[in-house]
Design a protein around this nucleic acid. Structure first.
Lengths: 111, 111
DNA sequence: ATAACATATCGTAATATTGCAATATGACAA
DNA sequence: TTGTCATATTGCAATATTACGATATGTTAT
């Protein structure tokens, strides 16, 4: 117990849930939104902007990187982060599919 | 330490992150997808369909209800669940905004 | 070489989440 | 009223997450 039972779900659902989960923390969502705002990639701007300790920010960046939402390139002594195109497009597709499915059904809920 | 520091973020980011977080577990995403598929509301169908114990499913339903993604109406001895229109539309808007912002920026990332 | 800077990693404490058995609740049927 | 069904709640153990101080790593400037 304690750990999520990923084995019992399809890979696709596990992956989609993992993307949502990564976005499901205010600091990480703030990082993503910052990367949406400043087209040019950000480095330690985040550490100054978000009032959390540097190791904490670094950890959140790692979570986003592991899921594939962002990528970072070393640029001198700082790291240049930006959004990962493939992941954003996956998000667009599967959230789009969910919302489309919703649109096609809603005459029915009589709760 | 240990708990998320919601105080340091804007309400809007906290709320959006909370929605993502609720969707960020395969069992809960499976529940939402089931509600998308079976237009008519589901009851203990979920308990039979998802191989997790009944209290576990009940707990996940509670999480989705607390965030407002689903709503349940007592219907005899079972409960009729369905998606909450307002929440789905909020999701559509803020994810749509994020993706639009992404579309408007992407000539820039040179990582 | 040394200092300064940006970032990552390690170790750890506090807290949250996940999952389930046991049990409670509430509705219907006999 | 008693039993059965569907769901919720409680209590608890296992595990994961969040946050940070201390420290390591790697790069540039002096």
């Amino acid at each position: 117990m304690g750990a999520t039972k990923n084995e019992i779900f399809h890979d696709q659902i596990n992956e989609e849930a993992a993307i949502f989960k990564a976005l499901g923390h205010p600091a990480r969502l703030a990082i993503v939104k910052t990367l949406l705002t400043y087209k040019t990639c950000v480095g330690n701007y985040l550490t100054n902007e978000i009032p959390l300790a540097q190791p904490t920010i670094s950890q959140h960046l790692k979570v986003l990187k592991n899921v594939g939402i962002i990528q970072g390139t070393i640029e001198g002594k700082s790291v240049c982060y930006c959004l990962n195109h493939n992941l954003i497009e996956r998000l667009r597709v599967f959230v789009g599919d969910m919302l489309l499915q919703y649109d096609l059904q809603q005459t029915k809920c009589d709760c």
